[in-house]
Design a protein around this nucleic acid. Sequence first.
DNA 1: CGTTATGTACACCGATCTGTTTGCTTACGG
DNA 2: CCGTAAGCAAACAGATCGGTGTACATAACG
Lengths: 203, 203
Amino acid sequence: MTELEKGPKGRRRGRGARERILSASQQLFREQGINRTGMDQLCAAAQVSKRTAYQHFTGKDELVAEYLRGFDPSVLSGVFDRTDLTPRERLLAAFDIPPTTPLCPYIGAAVELHDPEHPASQYAREYKKAVAARLADAAREAGAADPEQLGEQLALLIDGAAARTRVLNADAFPTAAAIAAVLIDNAIPATAGDDRRREEVPS
Amino acid sequence: MTELEKGPKGRRRGRGARERILSASQQLFREQGINRTGMDQLCAAAQVSKRTAYQHFTGKDELVAEYLRGFDPSVLSGVFDRTDLTPRERLLAAFDIPPTTPLCPYIGAAVELHDPEHPASQYAREYKKAVAARLADAAREAGAADPEQLGEQLALLIDGAAARTRVLNADAFPTAAAIAAVLIDNAIPATAGDDRRREEVPS
DNA sequence: CGTTATGTACACCGATCTGTTTGCTTACGG
DNA sequence: CCGTAAGCAAACAGATCGGTGTACATAACG
């Protein structure tokens, strides 16, 4: 926070224009979408001159990609690092994101940009794969028979809840969580109480 | 086809400009997205003058809404009217849409327009609810314990597969179908089908 | 035939978009 | 304390956007 260093080149003179730009991006891109947010408006909200903005980012495309990158720690790490939960609870905790997240920004970016080659689209793909992989890890810890499959399934549920929440304007994550519970119980061979791992496979 | 009638007022003089416009919409909005398709380009593709286009549609917004409306019969009716399938098969048939559908246009429209009050957004919501309702009907026919819940769950799976297919650029419908099979077998009490499941329904 | 709806061609409008330029101010840091 | 880099303000470019205006062509009916 107190450190005002920039990403590229060790320069650290500035007064935090880059941070304000990214912060404004997070707010405006989420509230209005990417395409409907012009650079003029964004710079005004960030209290940054356009000149400065284009010195920090080569263009809007790069800014969008960087904006997506800013979500990583809050979403991905926040859920999976909770050691106070059992693996099964950790899997279900991924569906407890009701208040803050109006729509997964990765899906939004992929749809709005509409170009699979766009840096932001590529990053969104990469991120979604990473989430599925971490879910698979947790599934493996929980003793799932086919962790990769369960991870992919749970990831699909999250995306479905996000998309459906957006279209219907109503929270769909509880439904997704209910499905997840079924899938998890179904995929873990002989779940005694919760997180006990068994090797025996039902005939 | 030989009938060249327009939707509003029984007028039938023209040579089919409206149809060409809608046809071009379906292609371009899907290929490039809504926001990235200008009216100029669209009119050129439809071989229609801009003036004519704005005589048929009051604006792009109305055109987008009408474009969405054009999907109804092909998707919704095509699956549920198949009497040759058992209710269970009919539920699963909803996930067999691999070739033609790159992304659910309703999700795309809702994300791109980014305005829940937009006519097209409202229609998308309405349509998604209708799909869930029809799935619930089929679930009831299949003897599901809680048809509404199962219908909503299957609808979420479809949306999840659509969103994930878009973001990852890889078909996610098989995964969704696998989940659907589990949910269906889990929700149908003890049918003479093939699978027996614990009645461990999530409370 | 002539009337009339339908469609065409094309210039044009104002707004907005991404991105650039010029000239100036401010605030570190040595 | 002074140089230098960071940042600011505002006009500007060029493109594209959605949408109109005007004048002209054509097809379908009576």
